[in-house]
Amino acid sequence: MDGALDVEGLSQRYGPMVLRRCRQLLRDEDEAMDACQDVFVRLLERRDRLDARYPSSLLYTIATNVCLNRIRARGRRPAAPGDELLHRIAMTRSPAALSEARLTLDRLFGRHPESTRVMALLHYRDGLTLEQVAEQTGLSVSGVRKRLRGLRHTLLEMQGR
């Protein structure tokens, strides 16, 4: 036990889900397992936020965030096709972003809180509805809608310049 959490029980129940998410985003087995361990460490650190009903929700969100940070840290473009959106979302704060598309996203996402990246990934890449994103991230639907609407408005403004 670590604090009030049964780490072994959590690993047993949620480990496969977390590792699959990390594999899906990182496409590297070693890095995925490394990230998977980070996810559980962060869960221990945030155990006060753990929803007793739906730990999977928080774990999935943490895993997404951990992987986005890692993709951004390694900085290289993923070789696998179809990862362009993931990569751009992950790299939104990279100072090395040079392409117009990436600059646009940098500026776009730079105006929004960090968690917006996770919401954007869940909605635009993973296909969750606004309601599902809200439920997944623990925000209200209106809050998610507002953020994503804000992103769209920002994008339109930037495209109009």
Binding site: M17, R21, Y54, S57, Y60, D126, G127, L128, Q136
Partner: peptide, 14 residues
């Protein structure tokens, strides 16, 4: 498509 996370959480009963 049912998103992966929805299917994962369905399996977990969450």
């Amino acid at each position: 498509r049912v998103p992966d996370v929805i299917l994962e959480r369905y399996r977990l009963g969450e």
